[in-house]
């Protein structure tokens, strides 16, 4: 018996796909002509099966910085639809474990999917109830595997993730991009932030004498400064963001906040407003 509905012969009435098989890809070349006529149909008609070519609803930069005794992360609350500021109350920092926070830039639906995957893993771990939990480096490895696996299927999850946490007295800060490239550093910034915020973060690290010399207050100040610069220059950003702090005490994700900005100069710039 041939189990592929597309090979069963003439549809009942309409000369289009009345078996509701669209857009199932055909496995054998003998697809009814009427079905082949549907644009983008499966492997036929010169159309390949297509995977995500670009993100749709996107979040912009995520920042991360190590400081004395912990890690701080920042991301704004905007999810853009192209250049439209479509969703203005999206939380892009997510606590995944007692000492781990996941931050996401890129496609927001892919982020929701990954969030779901990781939460499922954490529930599985909790249910085992055997004294073992997934710590930040374990979650990072898992995230890496997921991302690399999807890129290997030529169907990447269109995100750059930042994972911050504390484990056994060690701070952890790492990023993974859509190609499954893992990267760990004392400061991390994704997206536009890698151009605009990362130089500031690195400069602060250098002038203050490294991640062990930055106090929590200084770290907050640095983050706010970076978010301000991003708001000024990144057209996909918003002046409403959250900070996540991970220390030995645990995780705190702040309420949305904003920074003071000054737009007086705009008057003098042609095309900027006035």
């Amino acid at each position: 018996m041939d189990h592929f509905p597309t090979n069963w012969g003439n549809p009942r009435a309409e000369n289009v796909d009345s078996y509701n098989t669209y857009p199932v890809a055909s496995h054998i070349g003998t697809v009814p002509h009427s079905v082949q006529q549907i644009a983008g149909y499966g492997h036929t008609n010169g159309h390949p099966t297509s995977h995500t070519q670009s993100p749709v609803v996107t979040g912009t930069s995520v920042l991360g910085l190590k400081f004395k005794g912990g890690v701080i992360m920042a991301a704004d609350n905007l999810a853009s639809y192209g250049s439209l500021a479509r969703f203005r109350d999206v939380e892009r920092l997510h606590q995944v474990a007692d000492f781990t926070v996941l931050g996401a830039s890129g496609d927001m639906s892919d982020y929701q999917y990954v969030k779901n995957l990781i939460d499922s893993q954490m529930i599985k771990e909790y249910n085992a109830d055997d004294g073992h939990t997934l710590a930040t480096p374990n979650i990072y490895e898992y995230l890496w595997r997921v991302m690399y696996n999807r890129r290997s299927k030529m169907n990447p999850l269109w995100n750059t993730f930042v994972l911050g946490g504390v484990h056994k007295g060690e701070r952890f800060l790492g990023a993974i991009d859509l190609k499954g490239t893992p990267y760990q550093a004392a400061s991390i910034a994704t997206g536009f932030g890698s151009h605009l915020a990362q130089p500031i973060l690195r400069k602060e690290l250098e002038t203050l004498g490294g991640e062990d010399q930055i106090s929590e207050e200084q770290a907050v100040k640095i983050m706010k400064k970076c978010m301000m610069v991003l708001f000024y220059r990144d057209a996909r950003s918003m002046n409403k963001f959250q900070l996540a702090k991970i220390t030995e005490e645990g995780v705190t994700i702040s309420e949305p906040m904003s920074v003071e900005t000054e737009w007086g100069f705009a008057e003098n710039i042609r095309g900027y407003g006035a």
Binding site: A128, H132, L134, P137, Y140, E141
Partner: peptide, 12 residues
């Protein structure tokens, strides 16, 4: 080791 960078817990 591959998935979680963690030695398999014996109990599991």
């Amino acid at each position: 080791k591959m998935m979680y960078d963690r030695p398999m817990p014996g109990s599991r």
